Computed example of a mutant assay.
Amino acid sequence: MVHDAAGRLLLVRRRRAPGRGRWSLPGGRVEPGESDAVAVVREVREETGLLTEPDALVGTVVRGPYEIHDYACVVLGGHLVAGDDADAARWVDLATFTDLDAADALAPELAETLRTWNTLPR
């Protein structure tokens, strides 16, 4: 989970299932032998082109067979570009996030989870 200095949230639109065509947080699987921190850096870089440093665990959710651990991250560098299994990547403010939610364009339960964790964009 990456917020910029303005409080906008980094989202990607999924190219593949699960969640194809929906906006979500960047992320993916932890590969064998990887720590969560290494996987977070790799997945965010692959999906967004940004180099990040993970910080604290924000929360954990279970979606089907997946246990998802969301970490707060800080951007260290790179240039925002969609890649890997994302067909778009963008920073969104609260108004845009609300519009995406109203259009049913977000991953299921994302908005409610971020509200619960008090991590919505500003």
Score class of each variant (00 low, 15 high):
D55C: 11
L10K: 00
C73R: 00
D4S: 01
P18D: 04
P18C: 10
V92G: 12
R122Y: 03
A6L: 10
A102R: 14
R63W: 10
H79T: 15
P65Q: 10
L120M: 12
P65N: 10
C73I: 03
L106D: 00
P18F: 06
A56S: 13
T98C: 07
N118D: 15
D55H: 13
R15N: 07
L106G: 04
A17V: 10
E112I: 05
T98H: 08
R13C: 13
G7W: 00
V58T: 10
H79C: 03
L94W: 11
A39F: 05
V75I: 15
E43Q: 15
T52C: 14
R122E: 14
G21R: 05
H79K: 14
V74E: 08
A39T: 04
A111K: 14
L94M: 09
R122K: 13
L114D: 08
L80E: 09
A86K: 04
A107V: 11
E112M: 06
T60G: 06
R29M: 11
G21V: 06
L25Q: 06
L76H: 09
A56H: 10
A89I: 12
W117M: 11
D4G: 01
E109Y: 09
R22F: 04
T98W: 04
L11W: 00
V92W: 12
H79F: 06
A82P: 15
G83Y: 12
V62K: 14
T48I: 06
E109P: 00
V12N: 03
L9I: 04
G77C: 02
V58I: 14
V30Y: 00
D87P: 13
